[in-house]
Simulated scan of single mutants.
Amino acid sequence: MQMPPHYIGLEQARQVLAEMGVELTPRQMKRAADKDAAGRRKLPFFVDPIEGTLKIERGTLVNIYRQLQIDAENQYRNKD
Rank of each mutant, 00 (worst) to 15 (best):
M3E: 14
M3C: 11
P4G: 13
P4C: 12
P4S: 13
P5M: 11
P5K: 11
H6F: 08
Y7V: 12
Y7A: 12
Y7H: 13
I8T: 09
I8P: 04
I8W: 01
I8Y: 03
G9I: 06
G9Q: 07
G9R: 07
L10C: 06
L10T: 11
E11K: 09
E11C: 02
E11Q: 12
E11F: 00
Q12A: 11
A13K: 01
A13P: 01
R14W: 00
Q15M: 10
Q15K: 06
V16K: 02
V16W: 00
V16Q: 07
L17V: 05
A18N: 03
A18G: 06
A18P: 03
A18M: 02
E19D: 13
M20Q: 14
G21Y: 00
G21W: 00
G21L: 02
L24D: 06
L24T: 10
L24Q: 06
T25K: 05
T25N: 03
P26V: 15
R27V: 14
R27A: 14
R27E: 15
Q28L: 01
M29A: 09
M29K: 10
M29C: 05
M29G: 07
K30T: 15
K30E: 15
R31N: 15
A32I: 08
A32W: 02
A32L: 14
A32R: 13
A33C: 04
D34I: 08
D34M: 08
D34Y: 01
K35V: 14
K35H: 03
K35L: 10
D36H: 00
D36C: 07
A37N: 12
A38L: 13
G39D: 14
G39M: 05
G39V: 03
G39Q: 13
R40Y: 07
K42N: 13
K42S: 14
L43M: 04
L43I: 05
L43Q: 13
P44H: 01
P44V: 04
P44A: 07
P44S: 03
V47Y: 01
D48N: 14
D48I: 10
I50F: 04
I50C: 06
E51C: 11
G52T: 05
G52S: 10
G52P: 04
G52R: 07
T53C: 09
T53Y: 02
L54H: 08
L54K: 09
K55P: 01
K55Q: 14
I56E: 10
I56G: 04
E57A: 12
R58P: 09
R58Y: 00
R58D: 11
G59H: 04
G59D: 07
T60K: 05
T60W: 00
T60E: 15
L61H: 01
L61P: 03
L61W: 00
L61I: 08
V62M: 03
I64T: 05
Y65H: 06
Y65R: 06
Q67V: 05
L68V: 13
Q69I: 15
Q69W: 03
I70D: 15
A72R: 04
E73Q: 08
E73W: 04
N74Y: 03
